[in-house]
Design a protein around this nucleic acid. Structure first.
Length: 479
RNA sequence: GCUCCCAUCGUCUAGCCCGGUCUAGGACAUCGCCUUUUCACGGCGGUAACAGGGGUUCGAAUCCCCUUGGGAGUACCA
């Protein structure tokens, strides 16, 4: 059996972190099994669905490297891939269900339904739909009224029996026999409803494994009923636990950055994003934390999901991003940095300079965007801020002497950059001529040259710093 | 309310299915130490968890039940 999986987003907003994670799991499972990954757009909610969101979501998936084999933009033999374009199909099967008396027309108004709901539970009244159209004696009337052109919803007759699901994540799930009542599968406006479309599509698209969020676990009983009524093979299900925020509530907009495009705009590495997302609720068989998709293609499986919700944690994502950054080749990293805004200076430098700079700074960077920041702060900053630790160093009696000496030396330099040898010579002079050593020596020189009390090794940092910047700094600090 | 699902360090998790090897392992964060003629970088180490209560068993993080807590669903949303 060839695996066919799908990701079925609603185009009602940007691609959400949680959606990206389920998409990723589906994609990885397809890749790991040599299967097919289908993208289906669930746009039956006409009011909320917008076609621009469809494009945006597909873009974000592409950015993450989650590539579908079939979808609205990649037609295959199972199309169309937008539910809004599958009207006729849904109606065909719905009518079949009505004809077999597995579903019936329902003419109840919203008010009537509302009244029923309010009454539910009182005096032993059922919590489920108990409208008269459920009754066999109204069947013929219903058919006739619809034939005459009247509008009606189609309601599915929920069998009164227990259903059991063997979920790949949750294990055996038992749905008691009266868990759900008759439910609408086609609205009176003619549009079919999610739980129904989903089954028709999964059946017709020959989906073998449904990997989706746990929020669908309770829905599944309805879908099981429809599979049965349609005489379709039930796929395997894997209900992945949800992502939660710091308050342990389902991850949503109020938790901050929950849309993929936000991370994309901040130039997070897509590989790192996938790595981190994969780790939330799934574990590597060798307990590794850092991996890429190629590793996953070999060993991703449905057996390593955790059953409980996972908290989305920016700290660890930051670390994962940093690790992927360090794994990249210097060349690749340089080209990414050059795409960042405010990197004119960086771009103008020699290849040797860029290499040395990236090698030095990547120890301090977690994100690509950190590089311009670090260059500005560590290399190009002409006006050191008088922080308390810096004041402290400046107050030592040795520091003004060092500053004075360094200042005059810097001003003698003719070239654009100081060499490591020149820097060493200055250090030697301070040490010998002024008899300053140890902490006062190093901190004094560091303060004089960088205006900072900490940072990368001076012998690497100073040769990367333009001499004219050095001149301005010593001038500032000498005031 | 009803129904379903879940419960290991602050966080992500391994272990659980197939009880003993678990004085519960790893990672992030945090703290400390070492190194560096300095601070960072790096290296090393520490703190920190089986929700509670009952069973079953010679033995339970692992199996069963209850309680508590959390989450989800209960629509002519998806």
């Amino acid at each position: 059996m060839t695996v066919r999986v799908r990701f079925a987003p609603s185009p009602t907003g940007y691609l959400h972190i949680g959606g990206a994670r389920t998409a990723l799991y589906n994609y990885l499972f397809a890749k790991a099994t040599g299967g097919t990954f289908v993208l289906r757009i669930e746009d039956t909610d006409l009011e909320r669905s917008k076609s621009e969101y469809e494009t945006l979501q597909i873009d974000d998936l592409k950015w993450l490297g989650i590539i579908h084999d079939e979808g609205p933009d990649k037609p295959g033999k199972y199309g169309p891939y937008r539910q809004s374009e599958r009207q006729d199909i849904y109606m065909k099967y719905a009518l079949e269900l009505v004809n077999k008396d597995l579903a019936y027309y329902d003419f109840c108004t919203d008010e009537e339904l509302e009244a029923m709901r309010e009454n539910a539970g009182k005096d032993g009244a059922s919590a489920h739909y108990e409208g008269k159209w459920k009754l066999p004696e109204f069947k013929a009337e219903g058919m006739a009224r619809v034939a005459a052109g009247e509008k009606a919803a189609i309601r599915f007759r929920a069998p009164l029996k227990e259903y059991v699901l063997n979920d790949r994540v949750k294990g055996q799930v038992t749905y008691p026999k009266d868990m759900v009542g008759d439910f609408v599968i086609v609205r009176s406006n003619g549009l079919p409803v999610y739980n129904y479309c989903c089954v028709v599509d999964d059946m017709l698209m020959e989906i073998t494994h449904v990997i989706r969020g746990e929020d669908h676990l309770n829905n599944t009983v309805r879908q099981l009923m429809i599979y049965e009524a349609l005489n379709a093979k039930v796929p395997e299900f894997a209900h992945v636990s949800l992502l939660i925020g710091h308050d342990r509530q389902k991850l949503s907009k109020r938790h901050g950055a929950t849309s993929v495009n936000l991370y994309r705009n901040e130039h997070y590495l897509p590989e790192a994003m996938c790595n981190y997302l994969c780790l939330l609720g799934w574990s590597h068989p060798e307990e590794r934390d850092i991996f890429d998709k190629n590793d996953l293609f070999k060993l991703f499986s449905l057996d390593r999901f955790s059953a409980h919700a996972a908290m989305y944690d920016l700290e660890k994502l930051k670390w994962v991003n940093g690790e992927h950054l360090k794994k990249m080749s210097t060349t690749d990293l340089i080209s990414l940095i050059e795409k960042e805004p405010e990197t004119e200076f960086f771009r103008q430098q020699s290849a040797e300079w860029k290499n040395a700079c990236v090698e030095l700074l990547k120890k301090y960077a977690s994100f690509v965007t950190d590089f311009p920041k670090l260059v500005n702060e560590l290399i190009l900053n002409e006006n050191p801020e008088m922080t308390d630790p810096l004041k402290e160093i400046m107050s030592w009696e040795t520091t003004p002497k060092i500053l004075n000496f360094i200042s005059s030396e810097v001003h003698k330099v003719q070239s654009d950059f100081v060499t490591e040898a020149e820097l060493n010579a200055w250090m030697e002079s301070v040490k010998k001529d002024m008899a300053i050593k140890g902490k006062p020596l190093f901190m004094g020189v560091r303060a004089a040259l960088t205006g900072h009390d900490h940072g990368p090794d001076l012998k690497f940092l100073i040769p990367l710093t333009p001499v004219n910047v050095l001149k301005k700094r010593v001038q500032q600090l000498s005031k």
